[in-house]
């Protein structure tokens, strides 16, 4: 019985193991790898991927998928940069408008998925083209951000000593991850997400608010994603319509490596955070290695993803076997 309990946790345990192994091998192989600065940089460089992965974790646990996140990051960035440079709308209001646009897109996609019973893959594919297209409509080129408030936010940071600082957006990532973990574990909404991903028909028959929850999941995800877009524009201090190309796939990868089942019903926010860190670690190791082309990052991520998918397959097969006993 005890063994079976751990079976559910195998994905997240293996995620953690992979992270430790990667980190240790990096630390042994390269001088200066085992430092606070490198570790903190993992958070800094991956903050916006991480923030988006939090929303994606909700979506994937519920058994869905969202392909629109990369485009939405670009759209938010371009919208934000343009509103700041071309209008007099106050910066706080700009942030609010950007988040609202994200929420609106999510609400629309969630409603289509629920009311018309359309597959999330298709609906969010539409969202992906829509958001990408709109960002090019707004601007063909990169628009720099020179707003005072944005500059100050991008510079704001918590000093950690030794001249190492944790910037505001990295802090945002950490706080949002904590909130996400809390929602998943301690609220009815969070548990309903698991229920829907586990078996939607059952969840409906058990009297859970399936429709409302599903729409809410996509709304939240797109809002978080808009926030991720804002963080990205703080990180680069520009709005660029080609930003975040293929980002949705990186994010999905991070979530899956983090132990969330693509079929839904199983997953942890903690896993997602480690998943994001693993992607960052691979990149860092390649950088430290120095001779390899950065494209090797993709190769390693591909191999790792393959291993995790095989692991998920194995667990699913074990489950069916157990049932037949």
């Amino acid at each position: 019985m005890r063994f079976r309990l751990s079976q559910k946790n195998i994905p997240i345990l293996s995620t953690f193991l992979v992270f430790i192994l990667l980190y240790l091998s990096g630390a042994f192989a390269y001088k200066g790898f085992f430092s606070l600065r490198v570790f903190i940089n993992l958070f800094i460089d991956n903050a916006f991927v991480g923030i988006i992965a939090i929303g994606m974790t909700f979506v994937i646990i519920s058994g869905g998928i969202d392909l629109s996140v990369g485009s939405l990051v670009a759209f938010t960035g371009v919208l934000c940069a343009n509103l700041l440079s071309r209008t007099d709308i106050p910066p706080y209001m700009v942030i609010f408008i950007c988040l609202l646009c994200g929420a609106a897109l999510g609400l629309a996609m969630g409603s289509l998925i629920h009311f018309l019973e359309m597959p999330p893959f298709l609906v969010t594919l539409v969202g992906m083209f829509l958001a990408r297209g709109l960002s090019f409509v707004i601007s063909l080129d990169s628009v720099p951000i020179r707003n005072e408030l944005f500059l100050s936010i991008s510079k704001a940071s918590i000093p950690l000593g030794n001249g190492i600082r944790l910037p505001a957006y990295a802090v945002t990532f950490i706080i949002m991850a904590l909130i996400g973990a809390y929602i998943l574990h301690y609220t009815r909404f969070g548990r309903n997400i698991y229920a829907i991903g586990d078996n939607e028909k059952s969840a409906l028959l058990m009297g859970l608010p399936v429709g409302r929850t599903k729409i809410f999941i996509y709304t939240i995800n797109s809002t978080i994603c808009a926030a991720g877009g804002l963080v990205y524009s703080l990180y680069t201090l520009a709005g660029y319509p080609l930003a975040g190309t293929g980002l949705e796939l990186d994010v999905i990868t991070a979530v899956v490596i983090g132990g969330t089942l693509l079929t839904g019903g199983v997953g942890f926010m903690e896993g997602t955070v480690i998943g994001v860190m693993i992607l960052g670690l691979i990149q860092t190791i390649i950088t430290f290695q120095g001779n390899l082309s950065t494209w090797w990052t993709k190769v390693f991520i591909g191999i790792l993803l393959c291993i995790f998918i095989l692991l998920q397959r194995y667990i699913a097969a074990r489950k069916i076997q157990d049932k037949n006993k």
Binding site: K8, A195, D198, N199, S202, A203, M206, G265
Partner: peptide, 11 residues
């Protein structure tokens, strides 16, 4: 209570 069990296997 239905013949097929309408519960959530992973929870």
């Amino acid at each position: 209570v239905y013949q097929e069990i309408n519960l959530l296997p992973n929870l």
